[in-house]
Amino acid sequence: MAELIEGVNPTRMELLKLKGKVKLAKKGHRLLKEKRDALIMEFFNILEEARGVRRRTESKLEEAYKALILSQAILGGIKVREASMAVKPLDGVEVRSRNIMGVKVPVLEIGETRRTLIERGYGIIDTSAQLDEATTKFEEALRAVVELAEIEKSIRLLAEEIESTKRRVNALENIVIPRLSATVKYIKMRLDEMERENFFKLKRIKTTMESA
């Protein structure tokens, strides 16, 4: 038996008020439960996608590292480093947000990461095709990484939302609603008791008056 809400007066007014509250709590509970289920469904959809994106990113990166190491072997570490210093800066990413079931998730937009040899900015004469290859691979990998970042963050945010919704559903289900119902029951019993008492009192008065 759930505990009662403290400090309630067993009156009809209070009973009506509480009944309204129970109704509201039940409605809220149902809605939150629906929200939770929908969020979990969305979560699994994205999760599936995220696994794919992660695998793709990992293989892209692996290729990129291989190409980079090869270019270092051919040109020498210092030359590659020199070239990396000369590269023109990238535009960067644009962060926007999107709404999934009331959860704001980020959307990352990156312009074209693949650049031509000239756009990159390092010297063409003293570098080799291997370096160009490595750079191209990394440019592709960067795009994949950006996509991965977006989707993993979305998952994280969705998971947080699911957690808090779940907590609210449970609180309503296990604490708020039982407590309200218990109090309603208590007031009803008190009112009934008072009525019986009154009835008996009247009977008593009637008999004393009749016998008098």
Binding site: V80, R81, S84, F138, E139, L142
Partner: peptide, 11 residues
């Protein structure tokens, strides 16, 4: 290597 690779893309 990681830093070098991404520097090549312009980061």
């Amino acid at each position: 290597n990681t830093v070098l690779g991404f520097r090549l893309t312009g980061v």
